[in-house]
Design a binder for these strands. Sequence first.
DNA 1: CGGAGAGTTGAGAAACCTCAAAGCAGGTGG
DNA 2: CCACCTGCTTTGAGGTTTCTCAACTCTCCG
Lengths: 245, 245
Amino acid sequence: MQAIQPITAHNLRDLRAVCGNCSMRELCLPVGLDQQEIATLDSLISSRRRLQRGEALYRTGDVFTSLYAVRRGFLKTYVLHEDGREQVTGFQMTGEILGMDAISTDRHACDALALEDTEVCEVPFDALERLSGTIPTLQRHFHKTLSREIVRDQGLMLLLGSMRAEERLAAFLLNLSQRLSDRGYSRSEFHLRMTREDIGSYLGMKLETVSRTLSRFQDEGLLAVQGKAIQLLDLERLRTLTSCR
Amino acid sequence: MQAIQPITAHNLRDLRAVCGNCSMRELCLPVGLDQQEIATLDSLISSRRRLQRGEALYRTGDVFTSLYAVRRGFLKTYVLHEDGREQVTGFQMTGEILGMDAISTDRHACDALALEDTEVCEVPFDALERLSGTIPTLQRHFHKTLSREIVRDQGLMLLLGSMRAEERLAAFLLNLSQRLSDRGYSRSEFHLRMTREDIGSYLGMKLETVSRTLSRFQDEGLLAVQGKAIQLLDLERLRTLTSCR
DNA sequence: CGGAGAGTTGAGAAACCTCAAAGCAGGTGG
DNA sequence: CCACCTGCTTTGAGGTTTCTCAACTCTCCG
């Protein structure tokens, strides 16, 4: 078993190969830092935390102190409606950032749960803010990270507001595929870490509809599905599904 | 006809009475600034822009240079899907901020259109960023503003993903009511500035469904509606509509 | 081997959409 | 000042999608 290295701004360069064009790199590896700045960054993000599958990273109402960058693993974030309904707001994989919604109120606005064994780096927000005041490049990258989250949410609003079940699911699978391939994994074969219910909640449909739509996609030769194992067989046709109507 | 005063950090205090607990105050009136800081802020936000009803503030793909704070008027933002479908992502009124989605790519990710004659203050983003690097309170407030936008979007995702037409419309009306009353207007009587189609797009339903649902609310004595004029007659029952099921 | 959680499939119901027609309001030009 | 036009809104009827409820299967663990 391999020893886990502490995360530093230095060895984050290695992560880069794994995460590709991800928020982690954007946040932690702004270009043009000098040695001292990198050292300061190192001290900022040296703290880690491990989660077992099913364990919460934080819960709604918890006091906000830190952002988290996923080092490995997979999480979901969700908000609870008063009557118990659950809306999944996102799935996070290696290199992505959690907790940005908490800045506004100093308390977390959603729950974050590990869907498999997961390791995150903790980024104390006070320190990040102080540091970004002195390193303009870091500040810029942090702002872009926040803004990217806004754009992501708006994309999801478009999906929820104006697509039908088939289009939503196709868009979802293609998005997963893209993010996995960015990280060096296969773009066409992967394991879903979440349940049909999680997918349904994220996409605004019932788990039965998710299941039926997957079966239909399979019948039409778009993909092969067995439980959580997915193989995308016709990326091109999936793509046309998301844009035509 | 009254002369329009230039917006300054000083006279923004007046706006405060009008906007209440709004983003403008959060962004532009952080507590604890000294005279010099206020003067610097003044220079930052002194530029204004007027829009006629129907005019665009910016369009998707435009180069991003500035955020905008609404001084008076009403706008909608929307993203266009490839096939021409339009998803309204928000309605902005006095004191609210537009353009934060553009930070991530340096280009605007949506269109912003004035729904009535409107005046905005332009906040050059480079200057804001520089300044927020030197005034921690401003930085903090700016981050909160960005984060609040993320939370807002997630609330809308919950609405789109897990509510039915009736609940969505009730939530929408109550949200408008709240924001208007924050600004000193009546919480129960107001004019809708947008069309049924805009509302439908925002809430993920067709304009006919919006119209029918409004009519049903009227039959049930929840509100009175005539065209764009709305009178909320039973706020309490509207509220229960949004949380029960 | 048994249980529990997860997934699939079917049938009927409900919500919402589509298409169509008609009414209304506000602005424009004669 | 009125008639008209245009865009917005309302309402109806019928169709489609998605949901609900229910039964059954599968898979993974203990």
